[in-house]
Design a protein around this nucleic acid. Structure first.
Length: 586
RNA sequence: GCGCCCUUAGCUCAGUUGGAUAGAGCGUUGGCCUCCGGAGCCAAAGGUCAGAGGUUCGAAUCCUCUAGGGCGCGCCA
C-alpha cells in the first residue's frame, strides 16, 4: 500500500522536474507516514516540507503543485494539503478490503517478505558461560535474540543462529574445582568450600553423578587438598588467590587426565542443561561454537599474526599488547599474557575474524549491557585486521529486574542465589516469559512483574492477545454448533459489505502488519510487534463487542467471518514470530 | 575521575528515526451481558516530555551544559 502511493508521488515529482519546478538532478526519498490523528488521512507525506527549501515556493504551495500532478488511482478516495504542507491521502474502502483475501490466501506466510534477498546474517546471542544454569538475566537475551533472528528470517534474510561457548579459561577451572570439592564431600572428606567457588546445587548434582559412575577413584584426602593454601576471604585472605591455588592443587593431586575428566563432565552436563532449557524456551541454534576450538585450530594465533602484520601490536612488560587506541579505544589491550597464555580478548578477536571469514555479510552480537565497554576494542581489532567493522552490529540488552509481590527479587550468580530461567518458565509459563521479555526496548531497563506475567486477567497483555485468537476460534465453533457453513469464496466476493467504522479500522490494522514486521526486523525491535499485536487485539475485541458476526444474511456473515479469520491468522503469525502460542481455547 | 546507556501521566512503558493537538496498559472514577467466551468493551480524570540554553518552517526526538539513576573502566571470562 505504502509502495503504491510512493509510486504515485514519485510520478508527480518527476512531472514537476520535467517542468523545472524541482531541480532535475535530484532523486527523491519519499516518506509516507501513518498520521497520528483522525482527519489527517490514512497515509501522509511530508515531501513538500522537505523539498520546499530547494525551490522558491512555500511548502503548502509546493504541496498543492504535487497534488495537481498526482496520477489518478482507484486506491485513493481523496487527497488534501493540510497543516504546514502535508499531503494527506484518504484511501478508498476497497483498498482496505482487499487485504482480507490477501491474508487468507497467504496464510501463515502473510507478512513475510523478500527484503533481505537471502543475504546471510549471523545472530549470536545468549553465549552465557557454561558454569551454571541460565538465569533470568540470560532469558531476556535469549528471547530478544531469538525474536530478532526470527524477524530477520521473516523478511528474507538467511539467518544463522549461534551460541559462543566459553569452554576455556579460569571460570571453567573454578567450576571444575568446585565440582571436585563437592565430590570430595560425598567421599566423606571435610573440605571448606571456597568463597569464590560455584555454590549452586547443580554443582552437587554433577558431583553426585560422577561419584555414582566412577566411585571413589577421584577421592583425595582433605588434608592434602588444604595443605599450605593461601587464606580464603573468610580468613582475611584474597578469595581469588585462594581459589586459583585450589585449582592448581586439584590439577596436581588428580593429574591432568582425571582433572580433565571432571572438567569435561561439568562442561557437557551444564551445556546439555542449557541447551534443553533453551529448547523448552523455543530457542534453537544452528551452531554451538567452542572457544577452545579457536585455539586448537590455530585461529587465535593467526588473528594475532594478522594484527602483528598490520603493525598494531607491541611488547611491554613481557606481554603482547594490541594498540587499540589507534582506533579510539580508551586504552591498549593485552592479547598474550606475561605467562604466554592468550587472553579471552584474543579468542574473541579470532572468533570475530572467523565469523567474517565464514562469509556472513552481516554479524549481530547480542550482549548484556555490562559488556558495553567491550564494543570499541572488538571493532578496533576488526579495523586493524583490515575488515570492515560496520559489518558487525552489537546490540546491548539491559538487565531485567524481577518483582514479586511488589518487592524486588535479589540475585547473585556466584552465591547461587539466582532465579533460573527454568524456574521462571515454570512459574509464569513460556508464552508469558517470551512476550514479557521482548515487550520493552532492549536498551531499556526492564521491570519484570512476575505476578502480572502469571495473572490470567485483562492486565496481562499476553492473555489479551491470545484471547482474541481464541475468541475467533470460538466463533467458528459456534458456527458449527448452529449448523451454519462458512463459504470463504462467497465472503471474499462480498467484502465490500464491510463498511462499518469498526470494520474499517480493523482492516486498516491488518494492512499494517507487513510494515510492522519489516520495521521491527530492520530496527531489531521486536517490541514494535508486541505493541502492534496489542493494538490489533484491541481493534478485534472492540469490533466483537459492537457487532454480531453470525448474522442471518449469509453474504455479510461470510464476509465478516473472512475478516475475523484473517485477524486470527495475523495474530497467529505475529505471536509465532515471538514463539508465543496461539491457543484455540483458553 | 573518565566513558557508554537511561530519565515521557500516580505505576510500567510507546512515540513510525525531525512532523500536525503527547499515546497505550495498569491503577482511580463512572457506564455496558435475555446477544458469537465479561480473560471483553466504552467514557472521564491524569503532562512544564528531569532542568536550562542552542540548531530551523517545526524538537520528546539533534548539539552543549546541569541534576538524578544504571553499567563499565583486569595480563577475569
Amino acid at each position: 500500500m505504502k509502495q503504491k502511493l510512493r509510486h504515485l508521488l514519485t510520478q508527480a515529482l518527476k512531472a514537476l522536474q520535467a517542468k523545472h519546478v524541482l531541480p532535475v538532478e535530484e532523486t527523491f526519498n519519499v516518506e509516507l507516514d501513518r498520521p497520528r490523528h483522525e482527519g489527517q488521512g490514512d497515509l501522509a507525506s511530508n515531501v513538500a516540507l522537505t523539498l520546499a527549501s530547494q525551490t522558491s515556493m512555500r511548502p503548502r504551495e509546493l504541496a498543492q503543485r504535487i497534488v495537481e500532478h498526482l496520477p489518478a488511482s482507484a486506491l485513493v478516495r481523496r487527497v488534501e494539503v493540510a497543516g504546514p504542507g502535508f499531503i494527506n491521502f484518504f484511501l478508498s474502502e476497497n483498498a482496505f478490503q482487499a487485504i482480507v483475501e490477501e491474508i487468507l490466501e497467504a496464510g501463515h506466510s502473510f507478512g513475510r517478505s523478500d527484503i533481505g534477498a537471502h543475504r546471510s546474517i549471523q545472530v549470536e546471542f545468549v553465549s552465557a558461560n557454561p558454569t551454571g544454569p541460565l538465569h533470568v538475566g540470560h532469558g531476556r537475551g535469549a528471547a530478544y535474540g531469538a525474536a530478532v533472528a526470527d524477524l530477520l528470517e521473516a523478511i528474507g534474510y538467511n539467518v544463522h543462529r549461534e551460541y559462543y561457548v566459553n569452554d576455556a579459561g579460569r571460570q571453567m577451572n573454578i567450576l571444575a574445582t568446585s565440582v571436585w570439592l563437592r565430590y570430595l564431600e560425598l567421599c566423606g572428606e571435610t573440605v571448606v568450600f571456597p568463597a569464590s567457588g560455584y555454590a549452586g546445587a547443580y554443582v552437587r548434582d554433577i558431583a553426585a553423578a560422577l561419584k555414582h559412575e566412577l566411585g571413589a577413584s577421584l577421592c583425595r584426602s582433605a588434608a592434602d587438598v588444604a595443605m599450605q593454601l593461601p587464606a580464603d576471604a573468610a580468613q582475611g585472605g584474597d578469595a581469588e588467590v585462594h581459589v586459583d591455588a585450589l585449582i592448581d592443587r586439584a590439577r596436581t593431586l588428580l593429574g591432568n587426565q582425571q582433572y580433565q575428566l571432571i572438567y569435561q563432565r561439568a562442561l557437557t552436563d551444564i551445556l546439555a542443561d542449557i541447551r534443553e532449557d533453551l529448547e523448552q524456551f523455543g530457542v534453537t541454534y544452528d551452531c554451538w561454537f567452542s572457544e577452545h576450538s579457536l585455539t586448537a585450530s590455530g585461529a587465535v594465533k593467526r588473528a594475532i599474526e594478522r594484527l602483528r602484520a598490520s603493525g598494531h601490536v607491541y611488547e611491554k612488560d613481557k606481554a603482547l599488547w594490541f594498540r587499540s587506541t589507534d582506533y579510539r579505544d580508551e586504552k591498549d589491550r593485552v592479547v598474550v599474557r606475561e605467562n604466554g597464555q592468550t587472553t579471552y580478548f584474543a579468542s574473541d578477536i579470532a572468533y570475530h575474524m572467523d565469523k567474517l571469514e565464514r562469509g556472513f555479510e552481516r554479524v549481530i552480537d547480542i550482549w548484556g549491557a555490562d559488556h558495553h565497554g567491550y564494543v570499541p576494542r572488538v571493532k578496533a581489532a576488526l579495523s586493524a585486521m583490515g575488515d570492515d567493522p560496520s559489518r558487525l552490529d552489537v546490540l546491548l540488552v539491559q538487565f531485567a529486574i524481577l518483582y514479586r509481590g511488589g518487592e524486588r527479587v535479589q540475585m547473585s550468580t556466584r552465591s547461587g542465589e539466582f532465579v533460573t530461567l527454568r524456574e521462571l518458565r515454570e512459574e509464569v509459563g513460556k508464552d508469558a516469559a517470551r512476550f514479557f521479555y521482548v515487550m520493552r526496548k532492549c536498551e531499556q531497563h526492564m521491570d519484570f512483574d512476575l505476578d502480572l506475567a502469571k495473572s490470567q486477567s485483562a492486565d496481562n497483555p499476553v492473555y489479551y492477545v491470545q484471547y482474541a485468537h481464541a475468541r475467533v476460534c470460538s466463533v467458528f465453533r459456534q458456527l458449527k454448533e448452529k449448523g451454519l457453513r462458512h463459504d470463504r469464496v462467497n465472503g471474499n466476493a462480498h467484502l465490500p459489505l464491510l463498511t462499518e467504522p469498526h470494520e474499517q479500522q480493523l482492516l486498516a490494522a491488518l494492512g499494517r502488519y507487513p510494515e510492522v514486521v519489516e520495521a521491527a526486523a530492520l530496527a531489531h525491535e521486536p517490541h514494535q510487534l508486541c505493541h502492534y499485536l496489542r493494538e490489533l487485539a484491541n481493534e478485534f475485541h472492540t469490533y466483537y463487542n459492537a457487532h454480531t458476526f453470525l448474522v442471518e444474511a449469509s453474504d455479510l456473515r461470510d464476509a465478516r467471518l473472512n475478516l475475523i479469520d484473517a485477524t486470527r491468522q495475523v495474530i497467529a503469525n505475529g505471536l509465532g514470530l515471538l514463539s508465543v502460542s496461539a491457543p484455540e481455547r483458553m
